[in-house]
Design a protein around this nucleic acid. Structure first.
Lengths: 111, 111
DNA sequence: TTGCCTTTTAACCGATTAGTTGAAAGGACG
DNA sequence: CGTCCTTTCAACTAATCGGTTAAAAGGCAA
């Protein structure tokens, strides 16, 4: 339960139900009731999932008239993507460098 | 603790210590002792973190002679990246479509 | 106001997590 | 062989998680 933002986003998406919610919200905003429909769990459990997503900044629920729409915030996904991509790329470049070194050693074997 | 692969990868990276390990491993392979050095925790705790990363497929540790090198496996990051990118893009396209609709309504107001 | 639907809060449960300490294997090497 | 370093296993704790039920607010409209 580390409280930094990135940890909260990863933790929020570590649950299949919440990932499914995000997937569905990527197509259209929805109310809590609409989101709850496919799941075999209480409505309160769904609200708990929504709170986790909201506190991670993955989702927002503009206050206002009663059935509050749940809206996907892609900014949080972006920041997570940035993190992953940074280290993925760093490792990838390292492997490519290694490949070039191996290729060079292959062309000019050690004496 | 849902057991599907994607959940395990997200959960593995939801911990700041494990993310830091991944960040460092993106630069170079390391032994458990090297990884443990900056952290104020027991060596056994570090091995536990390594096991979580390994079972998520984020890291591999080729068996063999004793100080086993820990190696970052970018495949797991790739799969996570794919998931995020899929829904991020879907939401993004939806917003762009909405923008176009709004722009069209602006040019030709309702009669 | 009354009533219905939505949302939140609270208390509880069983399982899991991140850490600890202690002990036991495994492997490299003089 | 013995010794030292690395790795794993086991048991324990405090905290968190995903779910439940029950109860209380909030908001909308007849």
């Amino acid at each position: 339960m580390p409280s930094d933002t990135l940890s909260r986003v990863f933790a929020a998406l570590a649950d299949p139900t919440r990932r499914d919610m995000v997937a569905r919200l990527s197509a259209a905003d929805a109310t809590a009731n609409q989101l709850a429909e496919p799941y075999a769990m209480s409505l309160q459990a769904v609200y708990k999932h929504l709170r986790v997503l909201e506190e991670a900044g993955v989702v927002s629920r503009p206050p206002g008239r009663q059935p509050r729409a749940v809206h996907l915030e892609i900014g949080a996904l972006d920041r997570m993507d940035d993190w992953i991509e940074r280290y993925r790329r760093r490792a990838e470049e390292r492997y490519e460098r290694l490949d070039r070194v191996l290729a060079a050693m292959d062309e000019e074997p050690p004496r």
